[in-house]
Design a binder for these strands. Structure first.
Length: 414
RNA sequence: GCGGGCGUAGCUCAGUUGGUUAGAGCGCCAGAUUGUGAUUCUGGAUGUCGCCGGUUCAAAUCCGGUCGCUCGCCCCA
């Protein structure tokens, strides 16, 4: 029988990899807490409509990348491809409008049926931050600053660039879209095949194209900012002023657009050149129309998501794994005593590893492999004297000490 | 969905114009050391050469298909 492999685009998070993920999550959680964001989770699947309505039926994610299925009750469900829609759904279903501005941090697995690539898997993981019920530019500033602080703590801020843009409010956006389509229609002959398709579904994305021919056409396109309403222009100016005041460096990217339909006003990405083609570490923006699209009262919102795999690949400052203390009993009497001793030491907060089998040599070898800081050897001789032999594995020095002083001594080593 | 590269031991990889029993390093196991790791020395085990088919006297090697990985397009975190 052939051995099973993990499903394409999925990966096991073995302890080493899991440790990196936890480092990213813990760092983000701590920084978010400092900003007053509480942690929450939503279910991994939702009614398909939650995503279809919010992200837009024509977006690539909804139209061809969702893991959708009909459950045994006949419900149309989808494994979440992103976090924002689910959190907004939760905001509505739990009647959280009273708590606005509702500020949360979340993390978890996401699912998209895409061709796997470096930094792109079918099951991947995100950290996520949302602020719902805050129409003020201060929310944009806070959310972006929070992202920058997380990146800094991970040692990544100097490896990426913050690009920001404003898509304007709904009126600005519709007016600009009309003007852009009109301009692009006049240059059809010079557009790439991909962009011709985008012209129908999501013309703004053409601004983002990497194709050389497209870029020439785009260079002559009307600028988005010319279509901002006065309110949209003021809003964006306030956001930029706030980032300046916070000392967060950014680059204006007039052609930055995002792939999901719900974005308005501020759009931003922290982009790195260290990861190949999938260079967005954190991306997000404002989604003032989204809650309403999902059936709630008109409510402003802004947030972002960061790819944990991508962040983990680059993150520095990874704390080293905890070094255990190996407890090595010799003989039946000592083994019985060791069970009790191990529990007592763990209650003291120490990390105790009991090898389950083998002679002293084998257990010492295992202790070494686990990078144990010390081995505590407990045999009949020691038992009779009420002591243990303590061997510090880095130096190799060994000494005897009374068993009741062991916890205290081990704490000084760790 | 489209294009390029790659699949040999647990890991990283070598393997000549197709030619006998497929190799190295690391790791693993055992012994030197039956109450002491790491270091040193000695010995040992481990392969459906991704899979299926074809060419050939002969295939890890050439050809086709397939699955997987990987890089890019696309998309996005």
């Amino acid at each position: 029988m052939p051995a099973f492999q993990p499903v394409r685009g999925t990966h096991d998070l073995l302890p080493d990899e899991q440790r990196k993920h936890l480092h990213v999550i813990d760092t983000a959680r701590q920084v978010a807490r400092g900003y007053g964001y509480a942690e929450m989770s939503t279910p991994i699947f939702e009614f398909t409509e939650v995503f279809a309505r919010s992200m837009g039926e024509t977006s690539d994610v909804v139209s061809k990348e969702m893991y959708s299925f009909v459950d045994k009750g006949g419900e149309n469900l989808t494994l979440r491809p992103e976090y924002t829609a689910g959190i907004c759904r939760a905001f509505i279903s739990n009647g959280l409008a009273q708590q606005a501005p509702f500020k949360v941090f979340a993390h978890g697995p996401m699912f998209r049926f895409e061709r796997p690539q470096k930094g792109r898997q079918r099951q991947f993981h995100q950290i996520d931050v949302e602020v719902i019920g805050a129409p003020e530019p201060e929310a944009d500033i806070e959310v972006v600053t929070l992202a920058a602080d997380i990146l800094e703590r991970l040692g990544l801020l100097d490896k990426c660039v913050l690009e920001i843009n404003s898509l304007g409010d709904l009126d600005s956006r519709l007016a600009y879209r009309r003007a852009l389509v009109e301009y692009l229609e006049g240059h059809r002959a010079h557009l790439s095949e991909d962009s011709l398709k985008r012209l129908e579904r999501n013309p703004l994305r053409i601004l983002d194209s990497k194709d050389a021919g497209d870029r020439e056409v785009i260079a002559g396109a009307p600028p988005m900012e010319a279509f901002y309403t006065a309110a949209a222009r003021d809003f964006f100016a306030a956001v930029r002023a706030g980032l300046d005041a916070s000392g967060v460096a950014y680059q204006l990217s007039p052609r930055l657009v995002r792939g999901l339909d719900y974005y308005t006003h501020t759009a931003f990405e922290f982009v790195t050149t260290h990861l190949g083609a999938q260079g967005t570490l954190i991306g997000g923006g404002r989604y003032d129309g989204l809650i309403e699209m999902l059936g709630g009262q008109p409510t402003a919102g802004i947030g972002w998501a960061g790819g944990i795999e991508r962040l983990a690949m680059l993150a520095a400052n990874l704390p080293p794994p905890v070094r255990p203390v190996a407890l090595i009993p010799i003989g039946p009497a000592a083994e019985a005593r060791a069970l009790d001793l191990a529990r007592a030491l763990r209650r003291e907060g120490l990390v105790i590893e009991l090898g389950f089998r083998g002679n002293v040599g084998r257990r010492m070898k295992r202790a070494n492999r686990l990078n144990a800081i010390a081995a505590v050897i407990l045999g009949d001789d020691e038992l009779a004297k009420g002591v243990v032999a303590l061997r510090e594995l880095d130096s190799g020095s060994q000494s005897e000490l009374p068993i009741e002083r062991l916890a205290e001594k081990l704490r000084t080593l760790a």
